[in-house]
Amino acid sequence: MAGSEALRAAALLGILALIWFNLLTLPLLALLGFVAVCGTVAYSVAAPALVPPFTGYRPAVAAISQLRGSNWPRTVAFASGPALGRRAGRMGWRGAGVWVCRHAFHDRSRSAFRNLRTRAGVGAEAASAAGNPRRRRFRCFNISCCGRYSQRQFIFNTGSFLVLAIFVPYAIRHLGLSASGVGTVLAMYGVGMVVGALSADGG
């Protein structure tokens, strides 16, 4: 995990250095961003794996769900990212402030899908019901139900990805928004994510 974080820090420092020396190009930005996201993914995979040694096996399930399932830290991160980016833009930092939406969309859909699986019993109940024909049919129904749900989520996420892919250039060029304006719009989006997460956790 420390290595993945160091990799991400090195990639981000590389981007800053290229900006500083006025050598940044789109391929270099994409390459260094790719490397940074690789570090992020490695960290995200490794973090839940550390939970069982910390908590023991039985509390580990609840702890992992607290770390990943409730999505509170991530949702707060999604919401605060554009707000901080907007602040950075005001400080003349050339901005920061977007992307959050796409990841927030992904995580909300994953969370909703997980809730649906829990309610439908696809996880624990279906695993314990192997061998029983009636329960196996029920499990197949649940899986097909979740499959349709995931298909809809795929279409929904693809649509949101396409919209957000052109949001920043469209907002800057056609709507005349600055980096702080884009960050403000996305901060409002993040607030909606927090409200959604709160209402989902309360329900």
Partner: peptide
């Protein structure tokens, strides 16, 4: 998220 937000801007 802060880093990814800054990239497209």
């Amino acid at each position: 998220q802060i880093a990814l937000a800054a990239a497209p801007i």
